[in-house]
Nucleic acid binder design. Structure first.
Length: 269
DNA sequence: ATGACAACCTGTGGGC
DNA sequence: TGCCCACAGGTTGTCA
């Protein structure tokens, strides 16, 4: 489910409901996530007050007066605000009960997400991440420099979190189409000029998706339970076999690194 | 260092 | 209707 725009949507959605709120208690129904949920999570969090919400890559950083809760939504996770007495459904793994009768509820069927507790501002999982795609540091020049002598296909290159964070399968497909670059082209064989276009397209597609509240596939909802509306403007993702919106050529699907890639062989070289 | 690939886990949809 | 397989938004770890 969540790529960067969905995580950002979640971050913005829950912020007004948790900031300045104190944690009354924590209920962990299932601690077996991508990494085990800290056994003392309840002890750490109970009594803490949320002071700020931030995002780094696809990690949510929920800062309290005692430390920072770092949450990843994995492939199928979601965080929602709801009344703490709402019955827990299957796969509702964690509740963070707040002092106003509401709770922050984590739901994750595949359990690829994670909860970590940070005493300081750093964590090994954050140490070697590339720049944020919406930052000024991320540019065509940066991509060009990083890609010299790389033979990896350009799509897998921009999905590598050590190169740039937050570009998942949906938006990698979209940005490469917008930039007119064939996803299978070796990263080291893309010109500076074309990387300038690609960096712009990545910023544009992520920015647009955030503005639309994320892309709702299946059942993604933001922190307030409303769906995202970006799916209706996807250009290639999920449209294999349908006509290219630019030239009407039938869109092809290939597999790269075990992931689905959809492209227009006429528009993308 | 690089790149290919398996692994983690559950749900769903297509084909037969 | 039911069964089996392939695949799904992500990331880490291992191996050649």
């Amino acid at each position: 489910m969540p790529e960067l725009p969905e995580v950002e949507t979640t971050c913005r959605g829950i912020a007004p409901h948790i900031l300045s709120r104190q944690v009354d208690k924590v209920i962990v129904r299932e601690p077996r996530l991508r990494w085990p949920v800290p056994a003392n999570l309840s002890q750490l969090l109970t009594g803490a007050t949320f002071l700020a919400t931030n995002r780094r890559a696809k990690y949510l950083l929920l800062e309290t007066d005692r430390g920072t809760l770092m949450v990843h939504l994995g492939m199928s996770g979601s965080l929602r605000i709801m009344p703490s007495d709402a019955p827990a459904l299957f796969h509702d793994h964690i509740d963070i009960v707040l002092d106003d009768g509401q709770c922050l509820r984590y739901h994750d069927p595949r359990r690829f997400g994670s909860f970590h507790w940070l005493d300081s501002a750093s964590h090994p999982l954050l140490d070697h991440l590339g720049p944020e795609p919406l930052s000024a540091q991320f540019s065509g020049h940066y991509l060009y420099e990083q890609s010299r002598n790389r033979r990896i296909p350009v799509k897998q290159f921009v999905m590598d979190g050590k190169v740039v964070v937050g570009v998942g399968n949906i938006y990698a497909n979209e940005a490469l189409f917008m930039a007119g670059i064939h996803p299978g082209r070796a990263a080291g064989r893309v010109s500076l000029r074309r990387y300038d276009g690609l960096a712009d397209c990545i910023k544009q597609v992520l920015g647009d998706a955030i503005a639309q509240g994320g892309t709702t596939l299946r059942d993604f909802v933001g922190g307030d339970g409303t769906p995202g509306y970006f799916a209706q403007q996807l250009r290639v993702y999920g449209r294999q076999g349908q006509p290219c919106r630019v030239c009407r050529t039938g869109l092809r699907e290939i597999r790269q690194g075990g992931r689905s890639t959809v492209l227009c062989v006429s528009c993308q070289r």
